[in-house]
Simulated assay, not measured.
Amino acid sequence: MPPSLQVGPYTVIALADSAGPFFSPRSEAFPEATDEQWAAADRFDPGALDADGRWWLQFRAFAIRSDRGVTLIDAGIGPADSPAASWAPVPGALPASLAAAGIEPSDVDTVVLTHLHTDHVGWAVVGGEQARPYFPNATYLLQRAELDAIDEVNPQLRSAVIDPLRKTDQLRLLDGDAPLRGGERVCATPGHTPGHQSVLVESGRDLVAVTGDLLVHAIQLLHPELAYAHEMDVAQARSSRERVLRSRAAGTLHLATPHLTEPFIAR
């Protein structure tokens, strides 16, 4: 069984897809970070640095299961022929991780795509020329602002992901925050991309934030003010990150992150 976190009636499940090095040195990804900040981040998450000094990323999605259904947040790097193949360690193992959690693709009723980067949409649509949504019964949720900016964010995903989802009438566009059918909430967290979104799960005193790329390295958790070179709007990304990290509710804030070594971090 994959790692999971129980929050009231919700089980948040971390679904591993793969792991591998980032395509550029981490010093280029966070050019303002100091040696002291890197040292603190390495103590916090030593697994994010490999033996050759490269930034080592996890690639994972998350499922939220309750008696109301199954919500999937993001769709990993995908199979060997996915759009992420040019840089990410494909093929991913998301189907096997889903099976280990007892989830069939047909069980998923909602897929939240946090944003249109290739390592987050890889299993959304499969089949190449015979493209089909991998989750046949799911509504796929994307911020309208993300689709409006697709030519700037990732134009190849229009034909690879968006058009097939529209063909089967499975794409639904959101305008900002929105409730989900399972009781979770989508929270607009723009900055990394114009329509980046995260998912919040709240029960009692606990709050889980499934972050997407709101933060991609522990250095942003320790120093949320630091700019990441691949944020499209640095100031907006900083504001979104700080807003979520302040959302402690009455009790514990749990972060569910796709790229840090540990899938769940309590604050």
Rank of each mutant, 00 (worst) to 15 (best):
A229C: 03
G191N: 08
R248E: 01
P31V: 04
I64S: 00
A93I: 04
R185P: 07
Q130Y: 13
D151K: 13
A138D: 12
S239R: 07
Q170C: 14
L200H: 09
L207H: 06
W38F: 08
D50N: 09
R158N: 11
A99C: 04
I77N: 00
L165V: 10
S82A: 07
L147K: 10
V108A: 02
D17Y: 09
L173K: 10
S24T: 06
D67Y: 00
D45T: 01
F22A: 06
V153E: 09
G204H: 10
H223F: 10
S24W: 06
G204S: 08
A29K: 07
A149S: 15
E28C: 03
P190N: 10
L180C: 12
A16H: 08
H120D: 07
T110Q: 09
L147N: 12
E146M: 13
R267C: 03
G182P: 05
A188K: 09
S82R: 00
R185V: 10
G122Q: 09
L116G: 06
P190C: 11
M232P: 00
Q130A: 15
G204D: 09
L226W: 02
R54S: 02
W56S: 00
G20V: 04
G8H: 07
A84D: 01
W55R: 01
L255R: 02
Q58G: 05
R158M: 13
A145R: 14
V90T: 09
R158Q: 14
Q6E: 07
P179E: 14
A63Q: 01
T71W: 00
V216Y: 05
A16W: 05
V126H: 12
R248F: 03
T118Q: 13
